[in-house]
Amino acid sequence: MRITLFMAMTALLTMSPAAAWAQRNPKKEAEFLITRPVVGDPLPELTVYTPEGKEFKTADLRGHYTVLTFGCLT
């Protein structure tokens, strides 16, 4: 089985580590965990893009483990 492991290397060097965030924001973390979709739910099927602008369906991620991490330039 192919494993797709990608580290979250966003431009977040000035931010606190994740554990510190979760510790400071236990309520937000708890709310997030019970917000749909929760663990066990299917990944919503949506169309997004590759950086080159080609359409990409989230359903096409099936077939291997994928880590999805949100990020941006800032």
């Binding site: 979250a8 997030f32 990944l43 359903a59 483990y65 880590v67 999805l68």
Partner: peptide, 25 residues
């Protein structure tokens, strides 16, 4: 997917969410 700026999900081969956290770690 919960509207957080740096959240993280692990999706299994069937397309099911198997882990989620509000801040990537």
């Amino acid at each position: 997917l919960g509207d957080r700026p740096n959240s993280e999900y692990v999706i299994d081969p069937l397309g099911k969410i198997v882990r989620k956290r509000a801040w990537s770690n």
